[in-house]
Design a protein around this nucleic acid. Structure first.
Length: 207
DNA sequence: AACTCGGGGCA
DNA sequence: TGCCCAGAGTT
């Protein structure tokens, strides 16, 4: 936990672009974009988001699209039939129970189809500025390798450790920076420890 | 706990 | 070609 302060200094040097983002994002676009990004590479999910939001920017817009139209717009994100069901189901729930708006509580977000713990956290942190940390496979892996959480820690335990370790009002910055480390260096397969900016803080360099 | 969904990028 | 990817729902 005490090495987290050092990690921030290192990340400020290596990933300044991730430490300057302050603007809140539109909750609805954040929510739908997050569903599209599940188990999908950034470039593909961003392309799908652009395709979709170019045609529809509200729940009502999306529900006006035919099934084939929606499929074709988001096809490149993968899992597109399943995601289309999640998105239409979520849009209907938003209209029926939330006046067409995205709820700002975890409890209500988790009731939406296609919204699990990670997607709920991402909406809360990116759209509503809540101080929490989305724990996904990358964050979890980097955290375990750095020794911030034990190797067999479940997602809730990882989240608790991170929430205790990360300075207030910086969870978004940490999320983005640690995730980028996970993609660029601390990869699941073939980690690039020699080039990793965190290798001095890491408990298992070279493993 | 195991299984399913999936197109696209990369070696 | 084979392998993998900011998860969530179902059985």
């Amino acid at each position: 936990m005490d090495n987290v302060k050092n990690i921030l200094e290192i990340l400020q040097v290596r990933y300044p672009e991730h430490l300057t983002e302050t603007q809140r994002q539109d909750p609805f676009k954040t929510l739908i974009g997050c569903i599209l990004s599940q188990r999908t590479r950034d470039q593909n999910s961003e392309k799908a988001s652009m395709n979709l939001f170019n045609e529809a920017t509200t729940p009502q817009d999306i529900l006006c699209l035919s099934e084939d139209e929606l499929h074709n717009l988001i096809r490149c994100s993968g899992f597109y039939r399943q995601k289309a069901k999640y998105i239409t189901g979520t849009c209907k729930t938003l209209i029926d129970h939330h006046e067409g708006r995205v709820p700002d509580t975890r409890e209500e977000l988790l009731k939406l189809p296609g919204v699990g713990p990670k997607t709920a956290d991402i909406v809360l942190i990116y759209a509503y500025g809540e101080e929490t940390v989305p724990v996904d496979v990358h964050i979890s892996r980097v955290t375990r390798r750095l020794g911030i959480a034990s190797t067999d820690a479940d997602p809730e335990t990882v989240k608790k450790h991170l929430n205790q370790s990360i300075p207030k009002h910086q969870s978004l910055l940490y999320d983005r920076a640690i995730l980028q480390i996970g993609k660029d260096y601390c990869r699941k397969a073939a980690p690039r420890c020699p080039e990793c900016p965190l290798n001095k803080e890491c408990k298992i360099v070279g493993l």
